[in-house]
Design a protein around this nucleic acid. Structure first.
Ligand SMILES: [Mn+2]
Ligand SMILES: [Mn+2]
Ligand SMILES: [Zn+2]
Ligand SMILES: [Zn+2]
Lengths: 136, 136
DNA sequence: ACATTAAATGCAACGGTGTTGCATTTAATG
DNA sequence: CATTAAATGCAACACCGTTGCATTTAATGT
């Protein structure tokens, strides 16, 4: 299913920038830093990009995978809706190539601390990705 | 041991802003967002604050506990040196009062994924802190 | 195909943060 | 107290987050 259909099915207007964002993120298979989205979508005003990202987060199309050193990495959601947001997966950043990806694992990771009520857990792993391991 | 001694013992010059940062963070017992440090230390130029934070991270005095929505939370290190940085602990943010703290737990949390070599893991938990739970 | 309208867009503008260069000041040392 | 490497303050620039407002556009019904 292509980007315009995805948008229609979820009751969102089909606009150029929304299509462009979905296509850019679908191709890369990885999280994209804001700075790169900005470059790829430089035909659009950055305010429009900013507001579109807000909408697409809210509607469950994308999520923030990582915020680091002022850059924010965005990734496609796997099963979110405007009502239900599920981001209980691991984010991985390669120290070599700086790529960021979502890792969907089998076993859930839980935490329990006395006195504190924990609702969500975010895990960011860092190391060397499979591609960079081959290169070395 | 007070802030000037801590700095001397680690071979750093005792300057006003370094003392002020150590004291501000020591009192709060929590991570402080950059924005708050900026306010508390407004007598200093913000470039100096910026560079001092860089040095103190490098020297193992403080670390970034959380980066979220453009604000960075800094916390005191428990046992880091300029050579060895140990941040394998959990960071917790209360959704009620926005406080951020370091949680030093017993059991280590490990992750293992085929093809990928994981070196470090960062865990951020969110929920309601003990103080806010009492208030509710 | 065309008019209607709510939503989306582009532009301007402001404040905050990250970052660097450079001249000046200061903490440590003997 | 003199020396000097380190730290500081100031200026400057780029980038990001955010908002208001006027204009354009996608969707809908006729
Ligand atoms: Mn993800
Ligand atoms: Mn910490
Ligand atoms: Zn890599
Ligand atoms: Zn709280």
């Amino acid at each position: 299913m292509d980007a315009p259909d995805i948008l229609k099915n979820r009751g969102l207007k089909v606009t150029k920038i929304r299509v462009a964002i979905l296509e850019a993120m679908g191709e890369s298979r990885q999280a994209l830093p804001y700075s790169e989205l900005q470059k790829k979508l430089s035909i659009f005003d950055r305010t429009t990009l900013y507001r579109t990202l807000l909408v697409m987060i809210d509607k469950g199309f994308i999520h923030k995978a990582l915020e680091e050193n002022g850059d924010t990495y965005y990734a496609l959601c796997s099963s979110c809706t405007s009502k239900v947001h599920n981001h209980n997966h691991v984010h991985f950043k390669c120290k070599e190539c700086s790529s960021v990806q979502c890792l969907y694992l089998q076993n859930e990771i839980g935490l329990s601390i006395p006195e504190i009520s924990i609702e969500t857990i975010e895990i960011t792993a860092k190391g060397t990705c499979s591609l960079c391991r081959l290169t070395n």
